[in-house]
């Protein structure tokens, strides 16, 4: 027993030392070529720099600038992958819902203790407020729509666990349908934002691109970098805002689906097998 503990400690130390040796002597492969650092320098130089008007994103947060502008198309397809996963979950769980059968349930008897419930009541609005701040400051400080949306989904998750699924569906009336609607609105917003500059260009009759944010050399229109003196970094604000709703609603939807009791799910699946 004691020998085992010494062996554990020794193996951890040995791992750390060997990794350090391997890294020092390039045992894990060559270190990245210093030439690629120029790319990072270029991002940092242009991300908020009005002196390079055709290159800048007008956002001090280089990570968000890369995610939603420099490589924005990549992020759009990542978002689509995430929402396809949710569509998949919806397809598997089709027909399984708690929307009826809430009468006669003593919802207040479900869930954890009074203390936990009361603390949760207080935490839920604060979680939503803080996560909205993470999303709406995505173009200024670390964070963004996905991060904020995931954090916001913690609020319904807490209520699901601490009060029960029945409370969420019948008392708070957070139905699967309302979450699907909110998620779809968020996705529509993301798509509209990616077309915004193009539509603007078509209306005015000048050259513009899909997913364009700031003006470019051969397409001189773009979305405003600031409103009333406050930076919004053009499309970045809108992408973060809509992504926040889409992700929060998407996660909440999956949490509700996963928390439906197995007995209820089986009823639906059995009915399907018998061809009802």
């Amino acid at each position: 027993m004691r020998l085992g503990r010494y062996l554990q400690a020794f193996s951890l130390v040995a791992l750390a030392v060997l990794l350090a040796v391997a890294l020092t002597y390039k045992g894990l492969g060559d270190l990245p070529n210093p030439a690629v650092r120029d790319l990072a320098l270029w991002y940092l130089y242009t991300t908020l720099n009005p002196e390079v008007p055709n290159m800048t994103v007008m956002s001090p947060e280089a990570v968000t600038a890369i995610v939603w502008d420099y490589r924005g198309l990549d992020t759009l397809f990542e978002t689509m992958v995430f929402f396809l996963a949710i569509v998949g979950a919806l397809a598997i769980m089709r027909g399984i819902t708690l929307n009826e059968g809430g009468e006669g349930l003593h919802i207040e008897r479900y869930g954890l203790s009074l203390i936990t419930k009361t603390a949760t009541k207080l935490l839920v609005p604060l979680i939503i407020g803080v996560s909205a701040s993470i999303a709406l400051h995505g173009h200024l400080t670390p964070g963004g729509g996905f991060q904020g949306g995931s954090a916001a989904a913690v609020a319904p998750l807490l209520v699901l666990v601490i009060f029960s699924t029945y409370y969420v569906v019948f008392k708070l009336r957070l139905s699967e349908l309302s979450m699907i609607s909110l998620r779809t609105l968020g996705l529509m917003g993301i798509y509209m934002t990616s077309f915004a500059t193009l539509i603007l260009g078509l209306v005015i009759g000048v050259n513009a691109y899909i997913f364009q944010n700031m003006p470019k050399a051969n397409a001189f229109i773009g979305l405003p970098p600031a409103l009333g003196g406050s930076l919004i970094s053009g499309t970045l604000f809108f992408f973060n805002l809509f992504e926040f709703f889409a992700v929060a609603a998407g996660f909440t939807l999956v949490f509700i689906l996963l928390s439906i009791p197995e007995v209820k799910a089986r009823e639906v699946l059995k009915g399907e097998e018998h061809g009802h």
């Binding site: 909205a132 701040s133 400051h137 003196g229």
Partner: peptide, 20 residues
């Protein structure tokens, strides 16, 4: 309460923070 927590968490009180 949410407004106060929002502004404190954001760490600034510019017009953008106050409006959002």
């Amino acid at each position: 309460v949410v407004f106060i927590v929002y502004v404190i968490f954001s760490g600034s009180a510019s017009p953008y923070d106050l409006i959002t």
